[in-house]
Simulated scan of single mutants.
Amino acid sequence: MAYAQLADLVTLLPEETLIRLSNDQDDASAVDGATIAAAIDQADRVIDGYVGMQRTVPLDPVPGLIRTISANLAVYFLYRRRNQVPEVWDKQYQADLAVLVKISTGQIGFGAAGKKEEPPGQTLAASSGKVFGGSGGLLEGF
């Protein structure tokens, strides 16, 4: 299941821009669904790489923060395929990666559902050896 959908991208860019970024036909009048899906898939793989450090992926249900980041990254990847990433989308990409880094290190969370199981910890104990006989031993004086 994809984290973002075409409808999420339409909220970020005008449809004409999405057509231009996704469709390689000169006289295109519709978005290329396969190109959009590939950009979303690429975004989701990046997200899974970071989020997978803290959670079981893929995420289901998809948290709103992840849906937003997926849509943002997909737009970035669509611009990048044309080698024309506007500064605002480059900055958004950097900001989204910074959030993903914080998620991967546990600095930012988004609920308890889907947390990875932690392996049982080990308890290490150390003590000095018991001395029963001789000077200073437990049995001295008996």
Score class of each variant (00 low, 15 high):
1 M>F: 10
1 M>L: 09
1 M>H: 09
2 A>N: 11
2 A>R: 09
3 Y>K: 02
3 Y>F: 08
6 L>E: 00
6 L>K: 01
6 L>M: 08
7 A>N: 12
7 A>L: 09
8 D>E: 12
8 D>V: 08
10 V>R: 07
10 V>H: 00
11 T>H: 13
11 T>K: 15
12 L>S: 06
12 L>T: 08
16 E>V: 07
17 T>I: 13
17 T>W: 02
18 L>G: 06
19 I>W: 02
22 S>K: 05
24 D>N: 08
25 Q>R: 11
26 D>S: 11
26 D>K: 15
26 D>R: 13
28 A>F: 04
28 A>P: 10
29 S>D: 15
30 A>G: 01
30 A>L: 08
32 D>I: 03
32 D>P: 04
32 D>G: 00
33 G>F: 01
35 T>Q: 06
35 T>H: 02
36 I>H: 06
38 A>F: 02
40 I>C: 04
40 I>W: 03
44 D>L: 11
44 D>Q: 13
46 V>N: 02
46 V>Q: 05
48 D>S: 01
51 V>N: 03
52 G>L: 10
53 M>G: 04
56 T>F: 09
57 V>S: 09
57 V>A: 08
57 V>H: 08
59 L>G: 07
59 L>M: 10
60 D>I: 05
61 P>H: 03
61 P>D: 05
62 V>Q: 02
64 G>N: 09
64 G>V: 01
66 I>L: 03
66 I>Y: 06
67 R>H: 03
68 T>I: 11
69 I>V: 13
69 I>C: 00
69 I>D: 01
70 S>M: 00
73 L>R: 05
74 A>T: 04
78 L>V: 07
78 L>I: 06
79 Y>M: 04
79 Y>A: 01
80 R>C: 00
80 R>G: 00
83 N>H: 07
84 Q>A: 08
85 V>R: 01
86 P>D: 05
87 E>V: 11
88 V>T: 14
89 W>I: 01
91 K>S: 10
93 Y>I: 04
95 A>K: 15
95 A>M: 09
96 D>P: 04
98 A>D: 11
98 A>V: 00
98 A>Y: 06
100 L>I: 07
102 K>D: 14
103 I>V: 13
104 S>G: 15
107 Q>L: 14
107 Q>M: 06
108 I>M: 12
110 F>V: 02
111 G>Q: 12
111 G>M: 15
111 G>D: 12
112 A>G: 11
112 A>V: 13
116 K>Q: 14
116 K>D: 02
121 G>E: 11
121 G>T: 09
121 G>K: 15
123 T>L: 10
123 T>S: 04
123 T>Y: 05
124 L>K: 14
126 A>D: 05
130 K>M: 11
130 K>E: 09
130 K>A: 14
131 V>D: 05
135 S>F: 11
137 G>W: 12
137 G>S: 07
